[in-house]
Design a protein around this nucleic acid. Structure first.
Length: 270
DNA sequence: AAGGAGTGCAACCGCAGTGCT
DNA sequence: TAGCACTGCGGTTGCACTCCT
């Protein structure tokens, strides 16, 4: 047994001496944790658990705080813009959930991981292919995304709060998004401000995604570029899929007719 | 109405990295 | 530099809820 394993065993023995609680957190436990952190701050989780009077491991307290109790945790459906970012970033980094989460303020790595496993993998499964296969990625790129672009543009046409510019950009207030509809030269920019930079700005700064917590302006983040090669996705790039209406959230990438369309096309190409 | 299957998500587990003594 | 504690990450599990038959 190596050193780390010994350490873990000892810790587990200590855990049993204290009779630690496991499983779902109670309201009382949540209150204890929140109040303690409000008074003393976070960090030093093992001693925090002890001093806060919680019969939990430090690990459990940290997880509960980061994934649920933190005031800036966003609850509710993953928005279309967030879906877009998740897919784009996953195409680049794979299952680096915490890294992906850095670009989605208020979302946790756990939430993003769950989202990927339950939604994206489900669609791959329905298409009877591996989610990481070139086939699945190509299907998204060449069938799914153009289809969605149609929906975006249709949505824009009927949305008074969303505008399309003469250059083909889509501009959405609150979470501004710019989309250049040329497939091979597309770019996305997302920010919390209404203002959207010209398309050329984004294509110029390919690869220049800035984590929210490293950006001097915390209200701004952007995902630019699309179309670069990288070693994880073999050059696969993601187009934005949006319905073009700023207040829509969606549990699903595709509604029924979209999925049937995609499935037909996919089977045809097999 | 009942119960089996499927789904979504909170929480746990094991491991690796880092820093302190 | 070995030993240990702490933290963070990604994978997995368990359970509550919903849907379907």
């Amino acid at each position: 047994m190596d050193v780390k394993a010994k350490g873990n065993v000892r810790r587990e023995e200590e855990d049993h001496q204290i009779e630690l609680r496991r499983g779902p957190w109670t309201v009382e436990e949540d209150l204890k944790l929140v109040n303690y952190i409000a008074a003393h701050g976070e960090g030093r989780w093992n001693s925090l658990a002890l001093f806060a009077g919680l019969k939990r491991t430090g690990k459990s307290c940290r997880l509960r705080w980061l994934n649920y109790l933190r005031p800036d945790v966003r609850r509710g459906n993953i928005t279309l813009e967030e879906q877009l970012l998740i897919l784009e970033l996953h195409s680049r980094w794979g299952n680096r959930w915490s890294k992906i989460a850095q670009y989605l303020p208020g979302r946790t790595d756990n939430e993003i991981k769950n989202y990927w496993r339950t939604r994206v993998q489900k669609h791959a499964k329905q298409l009877k292919c591996d989610v990481n296969s070139k086939q699945f990625k190509d299907t998204m790129r060449y069938l799914w995304m153009p289809r969605l672009v149609e929906r975006i543009q249709a949505g824009i046409a009927s949305s008074s709060s969303t505008t399309a510019t003469s250059t083909g950009q889509i501009v959405i207030p609150q979470l501004a998004l710019s989309y250049n509809s040329t497939l091979d030269n597309s770019s996305i920019a997302i920010s919390s401000e209404t203002q959207v930079s010209p398309t050329s700005d984004f294509s110029d700064c390919y690869g220049n995604i800035v984590p929210i917590n490293e950006n001097p302006n915390p209200d701004y983040f952007q995902a630019s570029q699309i179309g670069s090669s990288n070693d994880y996705n073999h050059g696969m790039d993601f187009q934005p899929w949006l319905r073009g209406v700023d207040n829509i959230t969606s549990d699903h990438f595709l509604d029924c007719d979209d999925f049937l369309f995609l499935q037909q096309q996919f089977n045809f190409n097999m």
